[in-house]
């Protein structure tokens, strides 16, 4: 495999790791992602997707863990209304992150960057 093919492979692996971290392998997926980031060279497609994956997962961590934590803290653990918001919010926003990561995975397979980037 030449350098370019290697970076393409790292790109799709990074996108996969980011999706896994959001779904069935939380934390482990992220460690794998950091590991991939270290392997990639600057200015390559591999680096682009590794960075994108890290950003997405950090954003997800804030939106899911920190925001839910705050909701629990402010709303109180023993109020039904807290749980109404926490569970609906968590499920819905989590699903949106998964969908975005899925689109990124599909893009990484073509070896192109995203056409619009939010992060």
């Amino acid at each position: 495999m030449n350098a370019e093919e290697l970076e393409l492979k790292r790109a799709s692996l990074s996108a996969l790791a980011s999706l896994l971290n959001l779904t069935v392998l939380p934390v482990i997926g992220f460690i794998f992602l950091l590991f991939l980031y270290k392997q990639t060279q600057a200015q390559t497609i591999g680096r682009y997707y590794a960075v994108l994956g890290i950003k997405i997962n950090l954003a997800a961590a804030i939106a899911l863990i920190i925001v839910t934590g705050l909701m629990l803290l402010l709303g109180g653990f023993y109020s039904p209304w807290t749980w109404v918001f926490v569970i609906s919010y968590f499920v819905f926003v989590h699903a949106l992150f998964i969908l975005v990561a899925t689109w990124i995975l599909v893009r990484s397979w073509t070896g192109k960057k995203l056409t619009t980037t939010f992060l």
Binding site: P80, W81, W83, V84, S88, V91, F92
Partner: peptide
């Protein structure tokens, strides 16, 4: 879906969990 989910969580809490 979100409104029914909210209704459902409250229902579970008040009627089954508390």
């Amino acid at each position: 879906t979100l409104f029914l989910t909210g209704a459902g969580i409250a229902q579970v809490y008040l009627q089954r969990y508390s």
